[in-house]
Design a protein around this nucleic acid. Structure first.
Lengths: 380, 380
DNA sequence: CGACTTTTGATTGACCATCGGCAGAAGTCC
DNA sequence: GGACTTCTGCCGATGGTCAATCAAAAGTCG
C-alpha cells in the first residue's frame, strides 16, 4: 500500500523496536526479495544493524534488524540570555555528551558561535563517532525558522539578521536548523513526554515568560516567528509595573523571575528558587501568585487553543510545585469545562535539558525524513 | 521528481489554469507518453476537459486541458442557531444554487437534517448535474470532526452525540464532513480571500462570539474540537454581566449581539445592526465598544498566536466599519510591535456566505486529495 | 547424532509502468 | 500548394518489483 523506499522503511524502524524480515514483509506488503534489497541499502550505510534475537520457533532463527541511532551524531545547542548548553546526541535524541557554561548572548553571534564550535570540537574528540548529521540551535528571541535568523531580538544585540545557518554551515558541512529557545523546549518536552498528544502548550517561566505551541504534533511558529510571546500580554494586576520592554502592565513585569527577584531584593531567578527551597514564606507566596497570574493569561489561551496538555517549565518551575499549583488553581477555575475536563497541567520532565533535547529532535526529524534518507542512501 | 499519479496531476490543474501537454511535461518531469496516459484516465471520467486554446506558435496548435469543476457536485450547509443555509456548489467552490430559511436548531437533528435533504432535493432537480461528491455541514457548537458528532453543545438540545455522518451517509452515498460553524466560516474566508496566508484567525461576532483558527493553512480544531471559543473568556468590564452559559464576566455577555440588543431594548442582533444603519448614536457607540472588548481579548491572542491576518465577520460586523474600528484600535495599540507590524485586520468578504463556502471547501479538499482521486479513477 | 523446521541468499522469468523514438496528423508561413 | 513546425498516437526498449524455486544455513527435537 504505502510506497516503501529505503527511507520509508527506516521510518518504520525509527521507533527502536527490532523487526525480522517476516515482520517487515507483513507491515509493508513488499516482496521478500525487494525488502531484502532495501535492507541491504540501509545496512550498507549502517542506518540499521542486525541484532541477535534467537526467538527460534523450531527452525533457523530470524535475524532482526533495528534502527542504528549511532549512524550519525547531532550537535544540539541551547543558548540562553546568560547561560549556554551544548550537547552531542545520537539519532534517538539520547545525549552522549554535554557541556554547560555561563555565556552572555550579548557578546554577539561570532563570539557565541565560535564558543559553540570549540565546545563541540572538545565533545567530538571524546566521542567514538564523528559524522555530524546536523546542527540544531535555540536562541532567546524571535527567530525566522526558514532563514535561520533572529528578527528584532530585544535581548540579543548584534544578532539581528545574522545568517546563523550560513555561518555555521560554512564551518561544519551539515544542515543547520535554528529556532526560538522556547519552541525547541516545547518540541523536546512533547517528543519526550507526550509524543501522542496532538495539541500542547509549553510555558517557560524564567527571568522572562514565553511559551511554545504544538499544534497537530508540530510547532506553530507564527507569522513572524513571534508566536508564544505571552510575557508581554497586559494583565490588570501589573498596571503599574514597568517591564523591560518599556511598557506598563506586562505579565512578565509582575510574574517573571526578574520581577520576583526585585521584590525579594535578591539578584536573579535562581536566588528566588533558593529562597523558596530554603522555606522563605514570602518567596513561596510570590511564586504561587506568579503562577496565578500566568494562569490568568493561560485561561484565555486554553479557551482559544484547546490543548490537551500544558507543560510548565523554566527556572521558576524548579521551586517545587508552587508555580504549578498557582497555574492549576486559576486555569481549572476559569476556562470552559469542555476545554478543562481532560486538560492535563504538568511539570516539565526534561527540565534544563528540554532545550538541547528539542534542538536535537528538530534536527533528527529533519534529517530522517524518508526523502532525505533516500538521498543519502543513493549518493554517498 | 514528484510522484505523479492521476490524482497528483489533477491537483496541479486544480488552480483552474489550462495547460498543454508540454506545460505539464515541464512541471511534472514525466515522459509525454506517460503524461498522456494519465490525462486519458482523467479525461475518461471528465475530471478534466480539453479547452480550445489556439496559441499556435507556427505549428500544430496544442490542446490545453483544464480542471472540470462540474465533475461532481458538493452539497454544503450551514446550520445556525435560528437560520440555515443550503448550497449546491461545483468543485471550485462556486455556488450553483442556494436556499436560506429560518430553521431553529433546537428542533433536533432528525428534523433539521430532513429539511436539509428536502431542500437539497429541490436544488438538485433544478440542476443539470446530479453526481453528489460529498456533503459538508456546519453546526453551531463544538463538533468532534473525526466522528462528525456534536459534543456537549450548549445550544443544540438533542444533538449531543447524534451520528450525523452515518445518518446523512445512509441517505446519500457520499462522504459527509461535519464541523463547527465558525471553523467552516474561517476555512471559507481563508480559501477565498487569503489562500496564501499561513496563519489566520476568523472572528465571528454575532449573537455569540467565537473564532476559527487557521494554522499552516489548516484548521486548528483543538483537543475536544472546542478551540476558538473565545466568547467565554473572562474580561474585567463584564464582571457583573451574567452570560447565557451561567457564569459572570464572559466577553460574550458584554460584547455579543444579544448583550447589545438587551441594552438597546431591541430583540436581536439584526435589530442592533438596523439601529446602527439608521444612525442611532447609542447603537453605534455600543458596537464600537464591543469591538474594543473583542480587541482586548484578541490582543493577548495575537501575542500568543502571531497570525498575519484577522478577519472579522458575523452579523454584528454588518453594521459598517464600527466593530472593525474598535478591534483595530485596541489590537494595534496593545499587542507587540513585532506581531502587529504586518498584521492585517480586515472585514469578511464572503459575509453570510462564508459558512456554506467553507463547508464546500472542506468537502472539496477531502474529495480531491490525490489518493482519493486515484481511487475514483481506478474504480468506477 | 540425525531428522526436521524455518530462515536466508541467490537466481530466474513474468509483469507492469515508464521512457524515448518514430511516423502521421494538423496546423502556419511563404 | 509546398515547406516547415509542432503536437499526438503508437510501439518496442528499459528497469524495478514480484512470485517462485532451490540450496545452504542454523537452529530444535527426539
Amino acid at each position: 500500500m504505502t510506497q516503501e523506499s529505503p527511507g520509508a522503511l527506516l521510518s518504520i524502524l525509527r521507533d527502536g523496536r527490532a523487526r525480522t524480515r517476516a515482520d517487515l514483509v507483513q507491515v509493508t506488503g513488499l516482496a521478500r526479495s525487494t525488502l531484502t534489497q532495501r535492507l541491504d541499502a540501509l545496512l550498507d550505510q549502517r542506518w540499521i544493524l542486525p541484532v541477535e534475537e534467537a526467538i527460534s520457533s523450531g527452525g533457523r532463527p530470524a535475524t532482526a534488524f533495528a534502527f542504528n541511532p549511532r549512524a550519525r551524531l547531532v550537535l544540539a545547542a541551547d543558548l540562553g540570555v546568560t547561560r549556554a548548553r551544548v550537547a552531542l546526541t545520537d539519532l534517538s535524541g539520547a545525549v552522549l555528551a554535554e557541556h554547560a557554561a555561563d555565556l552572555p548572548i550579548d557578546g554577539g553571534p561570532e563570539r557565541c558561535l565560535t564558543w559553540l564550535l570549540d565546545t563541540a570540537d572538545d565533545l567530538l574528540t571524546d566521542s567514538d563517532i564523528s559524522d555530524v548529521g546536523g546542527i540544531g540551535l535555540g536562541l532567546p528571541g524571535p527567530v525566522e525558522h526558514r532563514s535561520g535568523r533572529a528578527v528584532n531580538p530585544p535581548l540579543m544585540p548584534g544578532w539581528d539578521g545574522f545568517p546563523v545557518t550560513e555561518w555555521l554551515g560554512a564551518k561544519i558541512d551539515a544542515p543547520v536548523l535554528v529556532d526560538n529557545d522556547v519552541n525547541i523546549m516545547a518540541l523536546g518536552e512533547h517528543r519526550a513526554a507526550a509524543p501522542d498528544v496532538e495539541h500542547m502548550i509549553f510555558v517557560k517561566v524564567g527571568t522572562g515568560i514565553g511559551c511554545g505551541i504544538v499544534s497537530e504534533r508540530r510547532l506553530h511558529r507564527g507569522a513572524q516567528g513571534a508566536a508564544g510571546d505571552i510575557g508581554h500580554v497586559r494583565v490588570p494586576a501589573a498596571d503599574l509595573a514597568l517591564c523591560r520592554c518599556g511598557n506598563l502592565g506586562c505579565l512578565e513585569a509582575i510574574a517573571g523571575g526578574a520581577a520576583l527577584a526585585a521584590r525579594l531584593r535578591v539578584e536573579g531567578t535562581r536566588d528566588v528558587v533558593r529562597l523558596v527551597r530554603g522555606g522563605t514564606a514570602e518567596a513561596t507566596n510570590l511564586v504561587r501568585e506568579s503562577g496565578r497570574e500566568v494562569g490568568l493569561v493561560l485561561a484565555s489561551i486554553v479557551n482559544f487553543f484547546n490543548p490537551s496538555v500544558i507543560v510548565i517549565g523554566g527556572d521558576l518551575a524548579e521551586a517545587g510545585e508552587h508555580l504549578l499549583a498557582g497555574v492549576r488553581e486559576i486555569v481549572y477555575g476559569r476556562s470552559l469545562p469542555l476545554a478543562t475536563q481532560r486538560l492535563d497541567i504538568r511539570a516539565s520532565v526534561l527540565r534544563d535539558r528540554a532545550g538541547v533535547s528539542g534542538a536535537a529532535m528538530m534536527v533528527i526529524e529533519h534529517v530522517l525524513t524518508p526523502a532525505s534518507v533516500d538521498r543519502m542512501v543513493e549518493f554517498g
